[in-house]
């Protein structure tokens, strides 16, 4: 009876803890860290929109703005974000059944909003009153040595023309 318990502990419970322990830990700490990042971003976005008073940001090349402009500058900024290892692990399990990958939603949403926020910050630093022709591009970055590495990250690039009036 006692030896059976030891057997179960050593050959079933311990390997399970060792294999699942790290992903669960990484997932939990990643969720906490990313929700904190999101909260910071929400606050910063609010502050920024209050400071610039609804700065014109558009994805169209506004002909009217271009006519009255004094000068312009090309703005570009990028950010590399990645999900945590635990999230990747659970996403890999989830991808067997398919469906919405909520963890990736958070990562992509954070990346896009943050990159646009930084672009607006850069525009205000350079004295631009409006941003036209905003483009956002996404690409996968794998700086890993082998293809089956667990680390993968996304790069979001935003570029636009800042107009000084």
């Amino acid at each position: 009876m006692d030896s059976e318990l030891v057997f179960i502990l050593t050959y079933i419970a311990l390997p399970l803890v060792f294999t699942l322990g790290f992903p669960v830990f990484s997932w939990a700490i990643g969720r906490w860290y990313q929700s904190r990042l999101m909260n910071v971003l929400n606050v910063q976005e609010k502050q920024q929109s209050a400071a610039i008073g609804g700065q014109l940001t558009g994805s169209t090349s506004n002909k009217m703005t271009s006519l009255t402009a004094q000068s312009s500058v090309l703005l570009h900024t990028s950010i590399v974000v990645g999900p945590s290892m635990g999230q990747m692990f659970f996403m890999w399990i989830k991808s067997i059944f398919g469906g919405q990958l909520h963890s990736y939603d958070i990562v992509t949403q954070y990346g896009r909003r943050e990159v646009v926020r930084r672009l607006q910050e850069q525009a205000t630093q350079l004295g631009c009153s409006s941003i036209v022709n905003l483009r956002i591009e996404t690409s996968t970055i794998s700086f890993a040595k082998n293809q089956d590495s667990k680390t993968s990250s996304l790069e979001f690039l935003a570029y636009a023309t800042g107009i000084r009036n």
């Binding site: 700490i29 990643g30 990645g82």
Partner: peptide, 11 residues
């Protein structure tokens, strides 16, 4: 990558 989020070195 343990916590995820922005990878500043790559940025």
């Amino acid at each position: 990558n343990i916590v995820g989020g922005e990878l500043k070195a790559y940025t």
